[in-house]
């Protein structure tokens, strides 16, 4: 079933899926922290929109609730929290230097292709119109990992981690039309708690090594430098 046989709403789901993976790419290229958090908020917003559209297409009222929850937690609450910590840690003027940005971008494109090939047999099992987007959600997961691997700043790692969670949520919505409400509530609060814990960790890392550069955590220091 090609794109042309689908209704405009099903097309819109796939279109938003493409935009979600686009925000992941933009996050990989973003050096500053505030715009990075802003991109993360945009991804959350797109995710909420997609969920609402899927709910509309399939007439699943409980998905509206999870769309609203995604909007509140991932597009508003967590970005606001991250913003506040960035200001409190006084790192909002820092510009992170990217290591080999061109290679990271190439790796990112390769990951998208890889996820497409991996997901191809899984797509055969699904009958939903949005099944083509499963590859995209898997790609968002892998791109989030790439963001964590290629950066050194702890806040960026957290954004990468959250965007992995976004990818998983997206996969659940597009492949199986959403998880049960209980599971979704649990995951949402887990994410929120994780975000709070990360905040606590930021301040701990900062007070112990006087920096948020996680590369400095590679070495063990027996004595104070």
């Amino acid at each position: 079933m090609g794109l042309m046989q689908q209704t405009i709403f099903e097309q819109a789901v796939l279109f938003l899926a493409a935009l979600v993976v686009f925000t992941s790419f933009l996050m990989l290229a973003q050096r500053r922290l505030f715009p990075l958090v802003g991109l993360f908020a945009w991804q959350g917003l797109l995710l909420a929109l997609t969920t609402a559209l899927v709910a509309f297409n399939l007439h699943y009222p409980h998905l509206y609730a999870s769309a609203l929850m995604t909007l509140l937690i991932k597009a508003v609450l967590i970005p606001l929290m991250l913003r506040r910590w960035i200001i409190q840690l006084d790192i909002h003027r820092e510009v992170e230097s990217l290591v080999y940005p061109a290679y990271v971008m190439m790796a990112a494109s390769a990951l998208v292709l890889f996820s497409y090939y991996v997901v191809l047999p899984i797509e055969q099992l699904s009958t939903l119109a949005s099944r083509n987007a499963i590859a995209v959600s898997f790609a968002v997961v892998l791109l989030g990992m790439l963001l964590m691997i290629s950066r050194r700043q702890a806040v960026t790692h957290v954004v990468g981690f959250m965007s992995i969670e976004n990818g998983l949520f997206f996969a659940a919505v597009t492949a199986t039309s959403g998880m049960p409400m209980v599971v979704e509530l649990g995951v949402a609060f887990d994410v929120l708690v994780a975000a709070v814990l990360f905040g606590v960790f930021f301040f701990h890392i900062r007070s112990s090594i006087d920096s948020l550069d996680v590369d400095q955590l590679n070495r063990l220091h027996e004595v104070e430098r």
Binding site: M1, G2, L3, L14, A17, A18, V21, F22, F25, A29, A102, M105, S109, V112, L113, Y116, N132, A133, A135, V136
Partner: peptide, 21 residues
Amino acid sequence: LGFAYLLSLLGMLSHVILEVN
């Protein structure tokens, strides 16, 4: 121009992944 290339490449990828079956 790398960004332009990325956009075009994403266009190609999203055609392959999302639009064809």
